[in-house]
Write a protein that binds this DNA or RNA. Sequence first.
DNA 1: GCTGAAATCGCCTAACG
DNA 2: CGTTAGGCGATTTCAGC
Lengths: 166, 166
Amino acid sequence: MPGIKLDPIDRKILAELQADGRMTNVELSRRVGISAPPCLRRVRALEETGFIHSYHARVNARELGFEVTVFAMVSLRSQAEADLSAFEDRVRAWPLVRECHMLNGEIDFILKCVAPDLSSFQSFLTGELTAAPNVASVKTSLVIRNGKEEPGVPFDVLESRISDDD
Amino acid sequence: MPGIKLDPIDRKILAELQADGRMTNVELSRRVGISAPPCLRRVRALEETGFIHSYHARVNARELGFEVTVFAMVSLRSQAEADLSAFEDRVRAWPLVRECHMLNGEIDFILKCVAPDLSSFQSFLTGELTAAPNVASVKTSLVIRNGKEEPGVPFDVLESRISDDD
DNA sequence: GCTGAAATCGCCTAACG
DNA sequence: CGTTAGGCGATTTCAGC
């Protein structure tokens, strides 16, 4: 899988589609400096090789009635692989949990949760999360405001580290 | 701004575009059960009213050479509004920091960072983040693996709480 | 192999009912 | 909101580098 490499045009395509995932192919081809057919072929190849995972609209959570975002730091009693996986399986079934990252250190998982209001989050917290098997402790922090939210990766950092292409 | 309301078709549109932001308008119109022109008008309206913020391709960070993701918990010495804003301004200029959330409690900010490797993150950590004005302490946690990563909000939670439409 | 040009097909997007 | 219709983008085909 790491045998596939990208040239500067591929990286430009990825950067452009990360910034605007609904851009038309002709506009994209214009921006990366090639004609439309090869541009479309490259996009399809990037999708099939997994460099592009998916496309999503970013919606305004608060306007839609999701007024609270909470980070939950979870520690488990057992860190055996089967128990870690079991917890992750459980997390995937909870719609309020949007992200789950396994961490090093004392905290085993950090969960990013979104809920309509505090009371619905708290009923999830006490009724589901802390009540789940193997959960030792949960520390929650309410998000007061969002200072930055950029999707994906910083391609400019990549460009200044790359010697050459494919 | 809260005067604008959404009917079930609008919510379906948002859910579909959150799940697949590159869907064609005719496919979208088919899924929500109306014809293409009014569907497009609704999408444009949702974009202009800010319910749809933007569209993004989700890329494979690891394949692209961003091997490490780190959560940084930052505490500041002063929590005066001017100092909080000054820190947020600084964060926006750091490409490695993809998200910055202000929290309640002892930790003032949680930062989600992405870097090509540990050494480049650590040079950012010591050279930029902990060296920034007003930063009292920074605790970092390396992401071992990702158990879940869903975009945006859980529309199914919304549906089971909504009495009626516009 | 790759790209680019031409042609076809389908979608987008006005205008109107 | 639906239908019609014209213009544009998407996608295949084919020729050239």
